[in-house]
C-alpha cells in the first residue's frame, strides 16, 4: 500500500499553483485533503510525478455568508461545514449532508472542493450542490470562469474542469425563507458511500431534487423538480426513477437500488415538506 513516488509542492497562492500545473502538464495533480486521492494512489490507480498541495493557499479558505449568496472556499473541510453556525442557519441542508459523509476523521481532512472536483459518483456533495443550484469558480492559465454544478459532471471522474484549472470557490444562492430542505442517505454501514441518497428543497411553489450514486454522475432532474413544485410527489418519484441509471454492484442489484432510491426520495420529500413553511 505504498504509492508511487512524486515530487511535493506547497505553493502559497493560486497563481503559483497554476504555474506548477502548467509546467508539468498531466504529470501534476493537486491534493486537497487527500482522502479520495491517497487511497487511489495507494492502489496505484493514480500516479503522478508532481503533487501540488493546496493547504497553504489562504484564498481557497473561508466561508462567507451573504444575504443572497453563500460562498465556500474549496479548501473548507467537511468538519468546518458542520461546525459553522452561520452556515447551518443560512443553508441547513449542507450540515445535514456533511454529517452523513464518511466518519469524523475523514471529515477533518476531506474538503468541499475535493469532494465536488473528484468526480466520483459516490461523493455526496455533487448531488447536494446540484440540488442547491451552486456554481463552481475555476481558475486556470486563461483566467477565471464559472460552471454551474448542474453542468459540471460529464461521466465518472470526468468533469468540465480542465487539468490545469483549480476549483477555487463554490457559490450557492441562499434558498428563500420557507423553503424546506432535507438530505437522506442509505448506506451499508457508517462511513460508507451511498447506496442511494436524495437532496430535496421544497417550498414557496419551487422545488429541486437531486440524487447520488445512482448513475455515473449525480442526477438533478428538472421533471422531478417541477412535479414536486406542483405538489405531485408520485410524479416526482416516477420522474426521478426514470432519470437514474443504477448498475448492479456490491451495494445490490438494479431493482434493489431503484427501490432504495424511491424510499430515500420519499423520506427526504416528507422531511423537507415538514420543514417548509
Amino acid at each position: 500500500m505504498i504509492p508511487a513516488g512524486f515530487e511535493y509542492h506547497r505553493p502559497g497562492d493560486i497563481a503559483s499553483a497554476i504555474g506548477i500545473l502548467q509546467e508539468h502538464g498531466d504529470e501534476a495533480r493537486v491534493i486537497a485533503g487527500g482522502h479520495s486521492l491517497i487511497p487511489m494512489m495507494k492502489l496505484r490507480m493514480a500516479e503522478m510525478g508532481h503533487l501540488v498541495d493546496l493547504q497553504a493557499i489562504d484564498e481557497l479558505k473561508g466561508i462567507q455568508i451573504g444575504s443572497d449568496t453563500v460562498t465556500l472556499g474549496a479548501m473548507v473541510t467537511q468538519h468546518e461545514l458542520i461546525t459553522h453556525d452561520g452556515l447551518a442557519a443560512a443553508i441547513p441542508l449542507i450540515r445535514e449532508a456533511a454529517l452523513q459523509i464518511a466518519d469524523p476523521q475523514v471529515r477533518y481532512m476531506g474538503t468541499v472542493g475535493g469532494n465536488v472536483a473528484n468526480g466520483d459518483p459516490g461523493n455526496d456533495m455533487p448531488g447536494l450542490m446540484q440540488c442547491l443550484n451552486a456554481t463552481f469558480e475555476l481558475s486556470g492559465p486563461d483566467g477565471n470562469r464559472s460552471v454551474a454544478a448542474r453542468e459540471f459532471y460529464e461521466a465518472a471522474y470526468f468533469t468540465a474542469r480542465e487539468d490545469e484549472e483549480i476549483l477555487t470557490r463554490i457559490s450557492i444562492p441562499v434558498p428563500g425563507a420557507g423553503v424546506g430542505q432535507a438530505y437522506e442517505k442509505q448506506k451499508r454501514k457508517i462511513g460508507d458511500y451511498a447506496t442511494a441518497a436524495a437532496a430535496v428543497m421544497v417550498g414557496n411553489g419551487t422545488a429541486s431534487v437531486a440524487m447520488t450514486n445512482l448513475a455515473d454522475t449525480p442526477i438533478w432532474s428538472e421533471g422531478a423538480s417541477a412535479a414536486l413544485a406542483d405538489g405531485d410527489v408520485n410524479g416526482c418519484v416516477a420522474a426521478m426513477l426514470d432519470a437514474i441509471e443504477p448498475v448492479a454492484d456490491n451495494r445490490g442489484p438494479v431493482e434493489f437500488k431503484k427501490h432504495v432510491a424511491a424510499v430515500m426520495l420519499r423520506r427526504a420529500i416528507d422531511r423537507a415538506q415538514s420543514r417548509a413553511g
Binding site: 511535493y8 487527500g34 477533518y108
Partner: peptide, 22 residues
C-alpha cells in the same frame, strides 16, 4: 485503507488517520 482508525493521531487539533496522510 482508511477504514479502521487504529492509526489515528492528533494533528493540529484534528483527529487524522495517519495511514491516509503523507
Amino acid at each position: 485503507t482508511s477504514h479502521c482508525g487504529a492509526c489515528t493521531v492528533d494533528i493540529d487539533g484534528k483527529s487524522v488517520k495517519s495511514c491516509t496522510t503523507f
